[in-house]
Write a protein that binds this DNA or RNA. Structure first.
Length: 591
RNA sequence: GGUCCGGUAGCUCAGUUGAAUAGAGCAAUUGCCUUCUAAGCAAUAGGUCAUUGGUUUGAAUCCAAUCCGGAUCACCA
C-alpha cells in the first residue's frame, strides 16, 4: 500500500482520539511537501478549523505531536507553517521501501483480477498509408492496453479495418485510369504508399475535371456531382456492393498491397492485434440488429422506409440507423460490431480509441445500446483523443499535407544514427546492434513525443523543429537508463542495508519518487492517460541525473553508502524500464 | 444557431476532485567534461493563468457572463 494511503487512516484515527469527532477520507488532503519546506508529506489543516474551532497552528501541533508519538517507525518529526502540517517520514521507513523493492521488476504491477477488456485501436482506412495522427492512435491504444494488462486485466486488442466504401473506390478508379498496370513490385514502392499515391491522383484529377466543368458554365455543386471520375467511382461502389467479380478482384488486389505495407509499419512500431475485424464483413450483421431494435420499439420507421431512433429526450437529435433502401450507415455497422465483439469475447469493458471528432457518434452508439438494454452498453468507453495538427492547421491526406509515418520514422532513425556516430560511445557495436539501437532511440523519441501530452488535448507538431533528443524526451529517459546500466555492469547491489543509516536529501528524493510509482500507474489507468507515466518517467530520470552528478556510487564514502546507492540505481533503472515499457518504449543498455 | 472541447512564459506542454511564492522542456544568456556515459548538471531571464464579476479562510482550478480558437450536429466512413 502506498504511503499516502497509509497516512490517511492514521490521521483519521488521530483526529478521532484527540477530538472525538469522525472525519471521512474525502475531507483530508495529503500531498507531497513542497521542496522549499522541510518534510515529506503535508496535511492541509484549514478544513478542520471550522469544525474543531481551533487555530490551524494549534491543530497542527496537536495532530503532529500525536502522530509522531504513536507512529515512531513512520514519522520522525513535524513542523507547522501557516495552515500546513509537514510530516517527515523516517529514513528507516524509506530504507525498508528500497530494500524490499529494488530488485522487483514487477513493482507496481498487479495480479489478474478476472476482468476482461477489449481495446480497439488503429482502425485504418485501406486507401492510404499511416500518418502521424494514426501513430498517436496506435501508441495510445497499445499503451493503454499494456497498462491495463499489467494492472491485472485480461486485454484483447482489436482493430476494425475500414476496407470498403467510396474512399477505397477512389484509389481503385485512379489506378485503373493512370497506373497502366503498375504494381508496388514493378515500382519498388511500399504497398500502402503505392495505393495512397492513386488516392492523391484521384483528387488531382477530380479537381481538374470539376474546374473544367465550372469553366464551362456549370455551378460548383453540380460540377462536383457530374465530374466523370466521381460518377465512375460511385458506379464502382455499386458494382462492389453487387459483387461484380472484376471489381472484387481489383479490390482484393489493392487491399492486399495495402495490408502488406501496413504489416511492415505495424511490426516496426510494435502494434499488434489479437483480433482483426473487416468492415466488409461486419457491415451486414448490423441490419439484423436494427430489426431487433425495431421490434423492441426503440427504433421507428418513417414513411419512406428509413429507420431512426429518437434521441431528443437525451438532448440529441433523431438519428438515422438504416437507409430507406435498406443499406447500412456507419452507426449500423458499429452497433452490429459491438454485439459481435460481445458475443465472441464476453468483455466487461470495451475501449474505443478514436479521435475526438467522433465524440458525438460514440455518444450516440453507447446511448442506443443502453436503450436497447444491452448488458455490455455501460462498459463502453470512448478514449477520445485530439488531432495532431501542423502549425499550418489540420493534416489532410487529400491535399498531401500529412506527415507520413514511415517517412517520419526513417528521418528519426537518421537523426539517431548521426547523433550516435558523433558521440562515438558504441563504436564496438555490430551493425545489427547499431540498427537496433537507432530504432530504439527513434521510436522512443516519437512515441514519447506523442504520449507525453494529455490524450484528450489536440497537439501541434512542428516539422521544422522536429523532435528533440534533449530535455523532456524519450531519449533523455533512455539515456538515464543507459547511464545507470553502465554503473551496474561494474557492480550490482545485493547486500542487506543497515536500517538506521541516515539518508542524504538526494538519496531520499529518489526513494520518495520511486515509492510513488504504483500510485502513478493506478492514476494512468484510471484516467486512460499514458502521459501521466511519461511525465513521471521524465521527472524520475531528471532526479537521478541530479543525484548522479552530485554523488558517486562506485566511490561512495562508505561501503554502506555504496550499497545504498547501488540499490537506488538499480530500482531507478527498473522503474524507468517498467514505466517506459508501459508506453511501448524500449530502453537500451548503452547509448 | 444547439452541443462539446480548449485559451497558462516567445514556442510546446504540466498543474484544473480548491491550498504555501503558478512549474517543466525548447529557444536566449552564463558556468561545469584529468573524476561511475556532457543525449548530462547548475544558474539567469521570461507570467494580468483570455476578460469581467461572483462563491470561499484560500481560485489557474468552482459558478455566471463575455471574447477568441476548434470539433460536431450527413441517408460520408
Amino acid at each position: 500500500m502506498s504511503i499516502v494511503n497509509q497516512i490517511k487512516p492514521l490521521v483519521i484515527k488521530t483526529l478521532g482520539e484527540l477530538y472525538g469527532q469522525a472525519f471521512n477520507e474525502t475531507g483530508i488532503t495529503i500531498s507531497s511537501t513542497k521542496p522549499e519546506f522541510e518534510g515529506d508529506y503535508t496535511l492541509v489543516l484549514f478544513s478542520f478549523v471550522k469544525q474543531l474551532k481551533k487555530s490551524p497552528e494549534q491543530l497542527g501541533n496537536e495532530i503532529g505531536e500525536a502522530l509522531v508519538k504513536s507512529n515512531p517507525d513512520l514519522f520522525s518529526g513535524y513542523n507547522v507553517i501557516k495552515g500546513f502540517l509537514n510530516l517527515t517520514v523516517t529514513d528507516h521507513f524509506w530504507t525498508a521501501v528500497l530494500q524490499s523493492n529494488y530488485a522487483n521488476t514487477k513493482f507496481g504491477f498487479k495480479p489478474a483480477n478476472g476482468q476482461k477488456v477489449m481495446v480497439e485501436y488503429s482502425s485504418p482506412n485501406t486507401n492510404k498509408p499511416l500518418h502521424l495522427g494514426h501513430l498517436r492512435n496506435n501508441f495510445l491504444g497499445w499503451s493503454v492496453a499494456q497498462m491495463l494488462k499489467e494492472s491485472g486485466y485480461e486485454v484483447i486488442k482489436s482493430c476494425i479495418v475500414n476496407d470498403r466504401g467510396i474512399h477505397i473506390c477512389k484509389s481503385m478508379i485512379a489506378w485503373q485510369l493512370f497506373a497502366d498496370g503498375a504494381t508496388p513490385q514493378s515500382t519498388h514502392t511500399k504497398g500502402d504508399h503505392f495505393v495512397g499515391e492513386y488516392y492523391v491522383k484521384f483528387n488531382d484529377e477530380y479537381k481538374r475535371q470539376t474546374e473544367e466543368l465550372i469553366a464551362g458554365g456549370m455551378k460548383k455543386e453540380e460540377a462536383e456531382k457530374e465530374a466523370p471520375i466521381m460518377k465512375a467511382t460511385q458506379q464502382m461502389l455499386l458494382d462492389w456492393e453487387a459483387g461484380n467479380p472484376a471489381v472484387m478482384e481489383l479490390w482484393k488486389k489493392m487491399n492486399g498491397w495495402v495490408y502488406a505495407g501496413f504489416d511492415v509499419t505495424y511490426k516496426r512500431i510494435g502494434s499488434d492485434f489479437a483480433k482483426m475485424y473487416y468492415e466488409s464483413e461486419t457491415y451486414l450483421p448490423g441490419k439484423k440488429f436494427v430489426e431487433e431494435g425495431l421490434k423492441q420499439g426503440v427504433f421507428f420507421k418513417k414513411e419512406d422506409g428509413s429507420i431512426w431512433i429518437d434521441l431528443t429526450a437525451e438532448g440529441l437529435d433523431e438519428k438515422l440507423v438504416l437507409r430507406k433502401d435498406g443499406t447500412s450507415v456507419y452507426i449500423t455497422q458499429d452497433l452490429g460490431l459491438a454485439q459481435q465483439k460481445y458475443e465472441e469475447f464476453n468483455y466487461n469493458q470495451s475501449i474505443y480509441v478514436i479521435a475526438d471528432e467522433q465524440n458525438y457518434h460514440m455518444k450516440v452508439l453507447k446511448l442506443i445500446l443502453q436503450k436497447l438494454g444491452k448488458p455490455y452498453a455501460d462498459g463502453i468507453y470512448h478514449l477520445s483523443y485530439g488531432m495532431v495538427e501542423l502549425p499550418t492547421g489540420r493534416m489532410k491526406s487529400r491535399e498531401g499535407t500529412v506527415v507520413d509515418a514511415d517517412d517520419m520514422i526513417e528521418e528519426m532513425v537518421n537523426v539517431a544514427r548521426k547523433k550516435t556516430e558523433e558521440l562515438g560511445k558504441v563504436k564496438d557495436f555490430t551493425e545489427t546492434e547499431l540498427m537496433e539501437l537507432y530504432d530504439t532511440i527513434a521510436l522512443g523519441a516519437i512515441k514519447f513525443f506523442l504520449l507525453r501530452v494529455d490524450p484528450k488535448k489536440k497537439m501541434i507538431f512542428n516539422p521544422e523543429e522536429s523532435i528533440d533528443f534533449h530535455g523532456f524526451t524519450g531519449p533523455f529517459v533512455q539515456y538515464t537508463h543507459a547511464r545507470i546500466k553502465s554503473i551496474l555492469r561494474k557492480q550490482t547491489a545485493g547486500k542487506q542495508l543497515h536500517p538506521a543509516s541516515p539518508l542524504l536529501k538526494l538519496e531520499k528524493d529518489l526513494i520518495v519518487s520511486l515509492e510513488q510509482y504504483p500510485v502513478i500507474i493506478e492514476q494512468a489507468v484510471a484516467e486512460h492517460n499514458p502521459s501521466v507515466l511519461a511525465i513521471y518517467a521524465f521527472s524520475l530520470a531528471k532526479s537521478f541525473n541530479t543525484f548522479y552528478t552530485e554523488l558517486s556510487v562506485m566511490n561512495a564514502e562508505t561501503e554502506e553508502k555504496k550499497e545504498l546507492r547501488l540499490q537506488i540505481a538499480e530500482m531507478t533503472a527498473n522503474v524507468i524500464a517498467s514505466s517506459m515499457s508501459l508506453l511501448g518504449i524500449k530502453v537500451p543498455e548503452r547509448m
